[in-house]
């Protein structure tokens, strides 16, 4: 009967990001969502609880306005939530997020399993899971597509490029999951309405230990741009020669 902590990030829904004519990104009317892989992580945690018992706590570090994210997470099945919020937490870097999560889990919670998504939908740095495991001093398995629990052990199937690696870790342990772990449910009407009745512990900056300085600095953000030339070639001999010439000029052929 493991008590599970599942971490999620409340990210900008990229469908709402607009690109201005100067190539800047416009975030003025964006909405937010639970990062895609974290939805898989929540689903995995809830299915494990349903199979083995125990409890699921959803946890996030975000800005105070992210209450909708807490409700969204709770509507997907966790029993309760820990919401660590401060206005300055908008652009945390993964080392800081991991330090905050680790500090709170160590000082206030007891759990046998921590589940994270493989990477977040915005930066996909894949840092928080492994860093958090290091901070907690527990084993970590990444790229996990299946989790089972056998006594005091977590058995995790890791998806490698050409094969599947099965690892066993003593609990407590941490896994980061891929979408293959299971399709997230679509919460029903009652699930959403019940979510706000579940217990939520809200912590602020004052409840935390010192947060490390960011080791990366974002200096700017631009939309990616793909230049296309749209040159047409036919199949006659002269055009084929011209096509080869064009590829050579571009450095595709030598």
């Amino acid at each position: 009967m493991p008590d599970i902590v599942v971490c999620f990030k409340w990210v900008v829904d990229e469908a709402y990001i607009r690109r201005t004519s100067s190539g800047d990104l416009d975030f003025t009317s964006v909405d937010y969502k639970i990062s895609e892989y974290d939805r898989n992580a929540i689903e995995a945690a809830v299915r494990l609880r349903d199979a083995y018992g125990g409890s699921v706590t959803a946890m996030t570090v975000s800005v105070p306005e992210a209450t909708k994210g807490i409700k969204d997470a709770l509507s997907r099945g966790p029993d309760n939530a820990v919401f660590i919020a401060d206005p300055s937490f908008r652009d945390l870097e993964s080392s800081q997020t991991a330090a905050i999560l680790g500090g709170v889990i160590k000082s206030r919670m007891s759990c046998q399993l921590v589940i994270c998504g493989e990477g977040s939908g915005d930066f996909y740095a894949q840092q928080v899971g492994p860093r958090l495991a290091e901070i907690l001093g527990i084993p970590c398995a990444t790229y996990v597509q299946k989790i089972t629990i056998d006594g005091g052990q977590v058995i995790a199937e890791r998806k490698a490029e050409d094969f599947v690696e099965v690892v066993a870790m003593p609990m407590p342990a941490l896994v980061t999951v891929l979408p293959d772990i299971g399709t997230p449910r679509i919460p029903g009407v009652k699930d959403t309405l019940m979510a706000s009745k579940k217990p939520v512990v809200t912590l602020g900056k004052g409840d935390l230990e010192r947060i490390p300085e960011a080791s990366l600095k974002t200096v700017g953000m631009k939309a990616s741009r793909m230049e296309r030339e749209c040159e047409k070639f036919t199949v006659d001999t002269a055009d084929i020669a011209r096509f080869v010439g064009a590829l050579q000029r571009k450095g595709v052929l030598r």
């Binding site: 969502k33 209450t67 909708k68 409700k71 509507s75 679509i186 959403t192 979510a195």
Partner: peptide
Amino acid sequence: SEEQELIRKNIREFAEK
């Protein structure tokens, strides 16, 4: 309300699927 916004997202996802 946040619940209404979430329910809209959920039924949208349901409908698309």
